[in-house]
């Protein structure tokens, strides 16, 4: 693959990769760092690319694996943070990134999605935000179709219940 092909085929995917990484590691600096590493890895393996039918899904898969690696290496630190976060009041608990720019209602959605289990969070990102097909999501997440649907169903169910009940009791 030439540099030109890299610029037209791979580089435009960077925002999707970035958002996906950001959804998992929740740090802009780290997410950006991950995307850089992904792109460099892709470039180094450019000979393999001719055999791939879906380059984008491949890039997303590398992003997922790298992000999970990073999470694993900082696992202890993160769980401590999460534990602290749940004790704090809802209003004061701000997400680590871009929270000030968001409307309150959206902050709540952000927090809600952040509180979902890892896989559900990934599925929501891939399906509801990036608009990938179920098959592509299987490919990216390396799980079967059934798992994808179960995770998506549970995620949407949790979101629905939380959005409706919190508002119903006026807790926003």
């Amino acid at each position: 693959m030439s540099l030109k092909a890299f610029k037209t085929q791979v580089l435009p995917v960077k925002d999707k990769l970035y958002r996906f990484a950001l959804r998992m590691v929740r740090s802009e600096v780290e997410a950006e760092d991950i995307v850089q590493e992904v792109l460099i890895r892709v470039w180094n393996k450019k000979e393999d690319m001719a055999r791939l039918e879906n380059v984008e899904a491949w890039c997303m898969r590398i992003t997922k694996n790298l992000s999970l690696d990073r999470l694993k290496s900082s696992y202890v630190k993160r769980t401590d943070q999460l534990a602290d976060g749940f004790d704090a009041s809802i209003e004061n608990e701000v997400t680590p990134y871009r929270s000030t720019e968001m409307k309150d209602t959206m902050k709540r959605v952000d927090k809600l999605i952040a509180s979902l289990p890892e896989k559900q969070r990934q599925v929501i990102q891939l399906r509801d935000m990036e608009g990938y097909s179920y098959k592509e999501i299987c490919d990216i997440m390396e799980i079967d179709m059934n798992q994808v649907k179960v995770n998506l169903f549970r995620a949407r169910k949790t979101i629905k219940e939380n959005l409706v009940t919190i508002n119903a009791y006026g807790l926003g």
Partner: peptide, 18 residues
């Protein structure tokens, strides 16, 4: 109650770019 969800999705796509 529901609309913030879709607003959030859209907002995320617009603002998180490199």
């Amino acid at each position: 109650k529901i609309s913030p969800l879709f607003e959030y999705y859209e907002e995320e796509l617009q603002s998180n770019t490199l």
